[in-house]
Design a protein around this nucleic acid. Structure first.
Lengths: 144, 144
DNA sequence: CGGAGTTTCTTAGCAAGGCTAGATACCTAG
DNA sequence: CTAGGTATCTAGCCTTGCTAAGAAACTCCG
């Protein structure tokens, strides 16, 4: 018999600890977590407006303004004012931003793969089967 | 054949999105995430010194001093100076802190359980099998 | 005994990231 | 041409992370 509450507890604790550990890996990127995360939206999802970027990162507009200011200062992204009501702004990754992001993503994934290598084959199989489900749980949480 | 890289990608993305979604649930506690997390160490792990608390939360000492300042101000924890070199301080949760923490934890777990309820039985079983493995992955990441 | 070192925590001051409120610029509708 | 709506930015606040430096209590050794 499954204990749902126990599963939820492990899920909660596991997600916290995995991300905490990955924070260290990201420090080597020489860029903060919020900036790296915003950049990843642009690199893997393509250019978008400030508003869309803020929504994708689930932060308020002004927060994203400052993050993009810093990324632009570092020549990792570019702003381009579009035509339309309210002068919407399109943000896109530069070639430099693209390179930095892919390197950082590789480091993150390499660290995870190395960590997974310490598991038994059976555990690794279980993890592989469950990993894609996590995003569905997150989506269901947002819908509540 | 399993694609390890794909699993790592899902793990990374899933952990990020689950935690991001849970942030919203925590806002209802009327207390910030860092404070709630520190409080949980005290409620579920028992009293400990400032240094141990900082280590458990993986933050520098001064950061924890300020978090505990705020928790004490809100009467959620208590400080007690111990005997010994460097006047060590024992921090413990008050009854009020204990109540608040347990309510917040229940909300978190309830939200997760509700979200898990939208999955198929098979997916729920897969998740239950893999959830306990997450903490082992995190531990392996820290050891790298 | 008394000064040096050790340990633990706090103070001070900085950068970053979260927020809300209000300003600004543009476009559309009437 | 004005009124209203939209998208962004500016200003100013709080929290959280850091490092460097200070304060207090104990320990040790000359």
């Amino acid at each position: 018999m499954m204990d749902e509450r126990e599963t939820a507890r492990h899920l909660n604790s596991g997600a916290i600890h995995v991300l905490r550990a990955l924070r260290r890996v990201d420090r080597q990127a020489g860029i903060t977590a919020a900036r790296l995360s915003a950049l990843s939206v642009l690199v893997f999802g393509g250019p978008c407006t400030m508003g869309a970027l803020a929504a994708a990162e689930d932060v308020a507009g002004p927060t994203m303004t400052r993050i993009v200011d810093a990324l632009e200062e570092a020549r990792l992204v570019r702003r381009r004012v579009l035509a339309g009501a309210g002068r919407p702004v399109e943000v896109s990754a530069t070639a430099k931003g693209d390179r930095l992001m892919r390197r950082a993503a590789d480091r993150r994934l390499d660290a995870l793969i190395t960590a997974m290598g310490t598991l038994s084959d059976a555990d690794r199989r279980r993890l592989a089967g469950a990993a894609p489900i996590l995003d569905r749980v997150a989506a269901a949480l947002l819908a509540e």
